[in-house]
Simulated scan of single mutants.
Amino acid sequence: MTTMAQVIQRIRNREADREDWLYITGDAAELAFDTEADLGYPEFDEDTDEEIDPPGFAERGLRSTIDMTTLDDCIEAADQLAGTKDDAAALDVIRYYIRFDAWPNMLNAPDPPPPEVTLLRLDREFVENLGAEDNARSCNKEGCDRGVVSLSVFCRRHHFESVRKRPYPFED
């Protein structure tokens, strides 16, 4: 059985093919040094364009995750964050990248917020950047008696809905 620790060493020693992908067993959140893992290159069925795992990988429960270029980048980013070559840091960054398709900004980074939380935060920033409503001019939305925001004919709520093409998510 090949482990994740052995895979990291093979990558550091440049003993991997540039075409390889990382294959792991189990949940990426549980990725550890002793997790069964391997490097291999998938083939593709010419008729269906479906991925075909390297021989024996499916039987071992291995599934593809990230390509060699991304693995190299994960290890380089981990070494930069750690300030030295550090296999534990490499494992941490690889685990994070597989789970979230993103780079952690520090070692042992917390999980990013769920997409809906991030969207709500970005929506709030958008609305706050619109500035105050000017009550000297009324919103052009029929039935709305609120003022308009700068450079718009709508209040915050209706400007948001016009630009974002979805309902205003706040109660204000």
Rank of each mutant, 00 (worst) to 15 (best):
residue 96 Y to Q: 01
residue 37 A to H: 06
residue 85 K to I: 09
residue 65 T to I: 00
residue 40 G to M: 13
residue 67 D to V: 06
residue 61 G to R: 06
residue 126 F to Q: 01
residue 82 A to S: 15
residue 38 D to I: 04
residue 117 V to K: 12
residue 15 E to Y: 09
residue 42 P to Y: 15
residue 65 T to A: 03
residue 70 T to N: 07
residue 92 D to I: 01
residue 36 E to Y: 09
residue 40 G to Y: 08
residue 30 E to D: 13
residue 37 A to N: 08
residue 80 Q to C: 01
residue 26 G to C: 07
residue 149 V to K: 10
residue 50 E to A: 13
residue 97 Y to G: 00
residue 110 P to H: 08
residue 115 P to K: 14
residue 20 D to W: 01
residue 29 A to R: 15
residue 63 R to E: 11
residue 26 G to T: 09
residue 36 E to A: 13
residue 53 D to W: 11
residue 5 A to T: 00
residue 66 I to M: 05
residue 96 Y to N: 05
residue 27 D to K: 11
residue 155 C to R: 00
residue 153 V to S: 05
residue 148 V to L: 03
residue 23 Y to I: 13
residue 116 E to A: 12
residue 42 P to F: 13
residue 164 R to Y: 02
residue 104 P to H: 04
residue 157 R to S: 02
residue 46 E to N: 11
residue 39 L to I: 10
residue 55 P to E: 12
residue 74 C to N: 03
residue 108 N to Y: 13
residue 107 L to W: 12
residue 110 P to V: 12
residue 7 V to N: 10
residue 139 C to Q: 00
residue 44 F to L: 11
residue 98 I to G: 03
residue 111 D to T: 09
residue 66 I to K: 07
residue 39 L to H: 09
residue 18 R to K: 09
residue 137 R to C: 05
residue 165 K to H: 02
residue 44 F to Y: 15
residue 148 V to E: 05
residue 23 Y to L: 08
residue 28 A to V: 12
residue 109 A to F: 04
residue 106 M to W: 00
residue 113 P to K: 14
residue 156 R to W: 08
residue 86 D to L: 03
residue 114 P to T: 12
residue 44 F to S: 14
residue 102 A to F: 07
residue 11 I to W: 03
residue 154 F to A: 01
residue 170 F to K: 02
residue 126 F to K: 01
residue 106 M to R: 14
residue 141 K to I: 13
residue 81 L to Q: 08
residue 54 P to Q: 11
residue 98 I to A: 04
residue 97 Y to Q: 08
residue 33 F to T: 12
residue 140 N to T: 14
residue 15 E to N: 13
residue 169 P to H: 07
residue 20 D to H: 14
residue 63 R to Y: 08
residue 28 A to Q: 14
residue 25 T to M: 12
residue 30 E to C: 03
residue 88 A to S: 14
residue 73 D to S: 10
residue 52 I to S: 03
residue 130 L to W: 06
residue 166 R to A: 02
residue 118 T to H: 06
residue 50 E to S: 10
residue 60 R to C: 06
residue 89 A to L: 00
residue 101 D to W: 09
residue 94 I to Q: 00
residue 31 L to T: 08
residue 60 R to F: 03
residue 140 N to G: 11
residue 166 R to G: 01
residue 21 W to I: 01
residue 11 I to P: 00
residue 84 T to M: 06
residue 80 Q to P: 01
residue 159 H to D: 03
residue 137 R to Y: 11
residue 78 A to G: 07
residue 38 D to T: 11
residue 160 F to Q: 00
residue 48 T to A: 10
residue 100 F to C: 05
residue 18 R to A: 13
residue 49 D to C: 10
residue 142 E to H: 08
residue 114 P to M: 11
residue 38 D to S: 15
residue 164 R to C: 00
